[in-house]
Computed example of a mutant assay.
Amino acid sequence: MSNDDAYANAAHIDGAEAYPRRWQEAAASLRAATAGEVHRRYGSARRQRYDLFLPEGEAHGTAVFVHGGYWRTLDKSVWSHLAAGPLARGWAVAMPSYTLAPAARIPEITSEIAAFLTHLADERPGPLRLAGHSAGGHLVARMLCPGVLPPPVLERVEACVPISPVADLRPLIDTEMNADFRLDTETAEAESPALLPREGAARVTVWVGADERPAFRDQARWLAQAWNVPLVVEPARHHFDVVDGLETADSALTEALLG
């Protein structure tokens, strides 16, 4: 039996088609109103760029948000509005893009995010806090797995919040999307945070919406159990609005990242 429906989100969210435009409009509004620099380079490839938003005064550190889209779609520009909560609490916010599948395989995307964080650590002082949604949740969790980040960078990661992460990639082998991922069992296992130990002292909180697809609730639970970390199931949230708390300084999601 195919896992395509199990991992389909838009088909099970009322009004799903309206979300991309809403995100883009909110993101553009924040970029227009916030100090910082967009399209900064962290590598030579076309999509190896990131946006940096700065709070008023000296930043406490830098919060990172890594976007989702099943490693195949979207980019940093769609999510700028999610910087609002951390900015209001005095944190700089960095949001990277990365090369998408099928042009890059998932291990290569993992390496790009590690390269981004290494670059960011050279550019920005202070602690790092990581959050990512869906495929981005997978990517920030992978940063805490052995051998991904250089030890001096890993030591600066104080907290990580994988939001609706894909933590075990093996079910994706049995989806049509795998034509782009080109996952086999060996690669899926090697890229699955739920099957790997974690390194470093970062505080980890796994986050998922109560109204998400059962497969995503399972994925979040698997990661939380494997790493023995808290799992928050946020009531009345689905896959497209589970990130909304990052827009607000005093939300539970922003507190999990920065508190």
Rank of each mutant, 00 (worst) to 15 (best):
W91N: 02
P86Q: 11
H67R: 08
W71S: 13
V93N: 03
F65Q: 13
K76H: 04
W79G: 00
G69A: 13
H81N: 09
T62H: 11
T73H: 10
F65Y: 15
R72W: 04
T73R: 13
F65R: 15
G85C: 10
V66T: 08
G90T: 10
G68E: 04
G85P: 08
A94M: 01
W71F: 15
W71V: 14
M95Q: 01
A94T: 00
A83S: 12
T62E: 07
H81M: 04
H81E: 14
W71D: 15
A94S: 02
G69L: 09
A88M: 02
G61L: 10
A84I: 05
W71R: 14
L87N: 04
A92E: 01
L74T: 11
A63D: 09
D75G: 13
R72E: 08
G90E: 07
Y70M: 09
W91Y: 05
A94F: 00
K76V: 01
D75K: 02
W71Y: 12
A92W: 00
F65V: 14
V78N: 04
G85H: 04
G85M: 12
W71A: 14
S80V: 04
F65E: 13
L82Y: 04
L82A: 04
A83T: 07
R72G: 03
G68K: 11
H81A: 07
L82V: 04
K76F: 01
L82G: 02
L82I: 06
S77P: 09
A94W: 01
L74V: 10
T62M: 07
H81G: 03
H67E: 08
H67Y: 03
A83G: 15
W79H: 04
V64Q: 06
T73K: 15
T73S: 12
D75H: 10
F65K: 12
M95A: 02
L82S: 01
V93R: 03
W79Q: 01
V78Q: 10
T73Y: 11
V64H: 07
V64T: 07
W91H: 10
A94K: 00
G90M: 06
W91F: 02
V64R: 08
R89T: 05
G90N: 13
A83Q: 10
G61S: 10
G68V: 07
L87Y: 00
L87W: 03
A88S: 09
V78C: 05
H67V: 14
L74Y: 15
G68C: 09
W71H: 14
W71E: 14
A94D: 00
K76C: 05
V66M: 10
A63E: 12
L74K: 14
Y70S: 14
T62Y: 06
G68T: 06
G69S: 12
F65S: 13
D75S: 15
R72T: 15
R89A: 08
W79L: 12
V78G: 03
P86E: 02
P86L: 11
R89P: 02
G85E: 02
G69C: 12
H67L: 05
G68A: 11
A63L: 11
R89I: 01
Y70K: 11
V78K: 12
A92D: 00
R89K: 13
G85Y: 07
A88H: 05
V78H: 13
S80G: 11
S77E: 12
W71P: 09
G68F: 03
V64M: 06
A84N: 03
A84F: 07
A84Y: 05
T73Q: 08
H81T: 08
Y70R: 11
T73E: 07
L74G: 05
V78W: 11
P86S: 09
R72C: 06
